[in-house]
Nucleic acid binder design. Structure first.
Length: 500
RNA sequence: GCAGCUGUAGCUCAGUCGGUUAGAGCGCUUGAUUGUGGAUCAAGAGGUCGGUGGUUCAAUUCCUCCCAGCUGUACCA
């Protein structure tokens, strides 16, 4: 033997920004996804699944002057040296799918898809590096009717999940209107300098809810210093330009018609701006015809979103209620989903313009919100009946009991651990088992089994503090003929399900 | 990435103005009370005091750097 080798013991830990999801949450989230799926199906969308990773260039995140994929995505090289990246959303893979299968698809192509996506970013409370999205998109639909439908469907989803009508709102804007306002403000030009300024302005507007209009003014102008002393460079606009943009973002709040009129005034002669308002008016007409009023879908110039590829109407699903979190702090949930029109995305692959619009739900955030609202469905799966192992020699007989219970649809399991009876009952208690089946020597000699009603027992233990009395209470159990096992278990289960 | 704060048991936290065997509550394991959950009682496991280097007779405590976490901010397709 060589010297004592130190065994390598990896630290058991979940990677930063990832998490394990316990049974109750898996079930409840699954139920939530099923509800959303029903709504998407009802609107005529078809399911599609694509793989977790794609060629990096298909996701479109190569920096022009670098030969490795951008930060923010998880990437690795295949054995032929090609870069692959984990998908960071479901829209880029959809664009790839449509471009790849373009000729074989019915157009418009309508699909829904859910699944995990990954982003290599700094995690925070409620922000993870893996999270689930649930998207629906219509590809090949140029008109505002497709956008209006997205808004209606999103509202329907939230209501299907039990979020009451006054507790959420779809906020809608149009990037063309924003472009129009930029034109009339004289924020125009070409090239990277202009692009950068453009982007800075939009990011600033996006922070309105967090920083307030004063903070946004600073970001539009000279820049802003935060409380830790960190300085963020501003867009360098003039006071006049800043006020016009602030005025635009504050033009929301009224009826959709009123917002459109306000937008018209601010957009002036800008052609693109007028076009944007016209689209919104069309959306308004469609929504109104179906009965979706401002309490469900409102127009709001402060909505900018994602900033990347949107080319027309953009929308955001916002929860408007507040809730108290575990620490007793008031929390607003804000945006739980969003989307918009992206007419250029498929063009990257095909060279042809393929107009598209879609909506994406942030599943985990929405789930957290439902939890706070008390709208999460309780664990509907009953815990299993547990058959104790009193004598190892009697295993075949115990196995037969669970099989009998399962054959009539009762969740049942045989105790598979190695501990004694006390530990077995404790285990059953922790699992939430309603009934424990006991067959020791005594029962077997009489051809009986003992059924212990753990739910009844738990009720009794509330009243009893004395150990002697607890023992006297006979543990809420009955002995029944072995041949009548299934019927009696059913009877006890039935009693408790009726009690609810 | 930048800035500030914080790292002691599985969890929540004491404690040492630098000094001998580092504690509590909860949780966990085993046992007693009946072959039987809760309550009660008893015993037990679990810590290189985040890591490294330094100052010192002596560092969990003071200093350096590193790492991790939290908060704000930036980025977020």
């Amino acid at each position: 033997m060589a010297k004592k080798k130190k065994t390598f013991r990896p630290k058991a830990r979940v990677p930063k920004g990832l998490r394990d999801i316990p049974a109750a949450t898996v079930r409840a989230e699954g139920a939530m996804l099923a509800r959303i799926r029903e709504v998407y199906e009802l609107y005529g969308f078809e399911p599609l699944e694509t793989s977790a990773f794609e060629y990096a260039d298909a996701l479109g995140k190569f920096l022009p002057d670098e030969d490795r994929p951008n930060e923010g995505v998880f990437s690795f090289q295949d054995d032929d040296d090609q870069w692959l990246s984990l998908r960071y959303d479901l829209t880029a893979p959809l664009a790839r799918f449509v471009a790849e299968n373009y000729d074989g698809l019915p157009k418009p192509f309508r699909r829904y898809q859910t699944g995990p996506v990954w982003r290599n970013e700094k995690p925070g409370p409620g922000r993870f590096r893996q999270f689930t999205q649930f998207d629906a998109d219509t590809v090949g639909a140029p008109g505002p009717a497709a956008d209006a439908e997205m808004c209606m469907m999103a509202a329907d989803c939230l209501e299907a999940l039990g979020i009451p009508r006054s507790s959420y709102v779809m906020r809608v804007n149009n990037r063309k209107v924003l472009d129009g306002v930029f034109e009339t403000c004289g924020i125009v030009g070409e090239g990277p300098e202009f692009e950068k300024q453009h982007l800075t302005v939009m990011r600033a507007i996006d922070k309105l809810d967090r920083l307030g209009s004063e903070g946004v003014r600073l970001l539009l102008g000279p820049g802003r210093k935060d409380e830790s002393g960190d300085f963020t460079e501003g867009a360098g606009l003039s006071d006049n330009q800043i006020e016009r943009i602030i005025a635009f973002t504050e033009a929301g709040g009224g009826t959709r018609d009123a917002v459109c009129s306000a937008m018209e005034a601010l957009v002036g002669d800008s052609e693109i701006g007028r076009e944007g308002v016209l689209e919104l008016r069309e959306i308004d007409a469609l929504l109104t015809a179906v009965g979706y009023e401002e309490d469900r879908v409102a127009f709001d110039p402060a909505v900018v979103r994602g900033l990347g590829y949107y080319t027309g109407p953009v929308y955001e699903a916002e929860l408007t209620f507040e809730a108290t979190d575990e620490e007793g702090e008031q929390r607003r949930f804000g945006s739980v989903g969003g989307g918009g029109r992206y007419d250029d995305l498929v063009e990257r692959f095909k060279g042809v313009k393929v107009p598209a619009t879609g909506f994406s739900i942030g599943v985990s955030r929405l789930f957290a919100a439902l939890e706070a609202l008390g709208k999460v469905e309780e664990n509907t799966v009953a815990a299993p009946v547990i058959v104790l192992v009193m004598d190892k020699d009697a295993m075949p007989g115990y196995q037969k009991m669970v099989a009998e219970l399962r054959s009539v649809g009762i969740r049942a399991e045989l105790y598979l651990g190695g501990s004694g009876m006390r530990a077995q009952v404790k285990y059953a208690d922790r699992r939430g088992a309603p009934v424990v089946v006991i067959e020791g020597e005594d029962e077997r000699s009489k051809g009986e089994v003992t059924l212990k009603d753990l739910i009844l027992g738990a009720q009794k233990s509330e009243e009893i503090t004395d150990n002697a009395e607890w023992r006297e209470s006979a543990h809420a159990q009955v002995s029944v003929p072995r041949t009548a096992l299934v019927e009696h278990v059913q009877e006890i289960l039935g009693r408790h399900s009726k009690a609810h």
